[in-house]
Every structure is written in structure tokens, then in C-alpha cells.
């Protein structure tokens, strides 16, 4: 029996992921290569080192800002958003 897909959104767009998949892997699998704009240049960034060392893959998930997409497993109902490369201010 196939496991249920995890349902999440990216900038409002509904997507699904495999259970256990990270946000970064799920986005790549869905054809999304970048999910962050850099602070100074507004340049797109996605996954670079894949293991949590480079902090390039920062993404916003629900109330969390600038978390590493390559480390965070995606959960059902997560609202993933393009990060502006800054931490939380609330």
C-alpha cells in the first residue's frame, strides 16, 4: 500500500511530498530550483551543500523564518514561502 503523500503549499501553490522528505528535496522534486532571495542583491538561491552547512537553502515555513530547507522534514499542512533571507521579527 502506498504511503499517503504529505500535502503542503509553496507560496500558495499546492504541492505534495513523500513522508520523510525534506522541504528542499520536496521542492526540487516538484521542479522548484530556488526559494530564496538574497538580502542585498535579491538574487535567487536554492540548495547548495545539501547537508546544512552553507545556509543557502533558507526558506520560511509557517511561523519560522530562514530555516534550512535541506534539514527540515516537510509536514502535512506546512505553508512554505520564499525567504527574504532574514530571521523572524515578531
Amino acid at each position: 500500500m502506498r504511503a499517503e503523500r504529505v500535502r503542503f503549499t509553496f507560496d500558495g501553490r499546492p504541492l505534495t511530498a513523500e513522508p520523510g522528505q525534506t522541504v528542499g528535496a520536496a521542492l526540487l522534486a516538484a521542479g522548484v530550483r530556488s526559494w530564496r532571495r538574497t538580502r542585498a542583491g535579491g538574487r535567487p538561491r536554492g540548495l547548495f551543500c545539501g547537508i546544512g552547512a552553507c545556509f543557502d537553502c533558507l526558506v520560511d515555513v509557517n511561523d519560522d523564518r530562514a530555516v534550512r530547507a535541506c534539514l527540515v522534514p516537510v509536514r502535512d499542512g506546512d505553508q512554505v514561502r520564499t525567504s527574504e533571507s532574514v530571521g523572524v521579527d515578531r
Binding site: R39, A66, E84, S85, V86, G87, D89
Partner: peptide, 9 residues
């Protein structure tokens, strides 16, 4: 030192 935050916080 913190991570970068939105300006004027």
C-alpha cells in the same frame, strides 16, 4: 551577533 533581521527593527 544575531542573524540578519528586517531593516529598522
Amino acid at each position: 551577533v544575531t542573524e540578519p533581521l528586517p531593516a529598522e527593527v
